[in-house]
Amino acid sequence: MQTSADKTNQPLLDIANLKVDFHTPTGIVQAVRGLSFTLGRERLGIVGESGSGKSMTGRAILDLIPHPGVVGADRMMFRGQDLMAMDKRERRKLRGRHISMVMQDPKFSLNPVQTVGSQIAEAYRIHRKAGAREARERSLTMLESVQIREPARVYDLYPHEVSGGMGQRVMIAMMLIAEPEILIADEPTSALDVTVQLQILKILDDLVSERGMGLIFISHDLHLVQSFCDRVIVMYGGKVMETLPAAELADETTRGRRHPYTLGLLNCLPDLDHPREKLPTLNRDPAWLA
């Protein structure tokens, strides 16, 4: 499909001026307003508050924006292929196979009346055109690789029989079984305990460093993004406030260069090392959205 020559230098994803508009009876709601970024084989964090358009960005890449949403972009390229020029059928072929997404809550994203194992196997059979037996074997290996101790037992469990952390690992196994080049993780760990959260991050981290996957990590947790990602996009009201190396979020010396919104977000977190009587609250400047 792609020319092998510049495979390594070419970004996995190249997006320019992405817009998501919802045409509602009371007017147009702009969920994403002109977002541009490229994704290499890295961990890219997208942070922002609820309603900042971070989830909609992930969904727009996968063509999962529900009606009445309309996606527009000057450029949206996946490894040199123009996503905007593709029809629904071609986009569907990419989805799950080459670009996939882990949703926030496993409780609502798994089919409640199908065993978790068969759901993982189904993903493999569809994308890899494999037989039932091969799919089962691959699914068991996959469950093992997301650190599930007894894959054979878990395979036959229904979603309500697994814990939140295990459900999230099942979701990740399902999304990774087709070996996508890009994984979009939408708050994959925010429903989980800190220790389980770190295990899941370790799995994602290994995939990026070992398989060269591109990861878009959507989160509202600044501490987590700062410690886990390579680069961070800070979004507010559907716009990018700034893009910065993740390590600089914690770096006091670069504070002068930071966008006031990023600083505002950082300041309003309670901090064990800097106890304060009163937490500063965020002052939003309408000019940021101009």
Binding site: E49, H220, L265, C268, L279
Partner: peptide
């Protein structure tokens, strides 16, 4: 959200 959290904690 963290900004709202700060308000409620205050």
């Amino acid at each position: 959200d963290v900004s709202i959290q700060a308000e409620v904690l205050n």
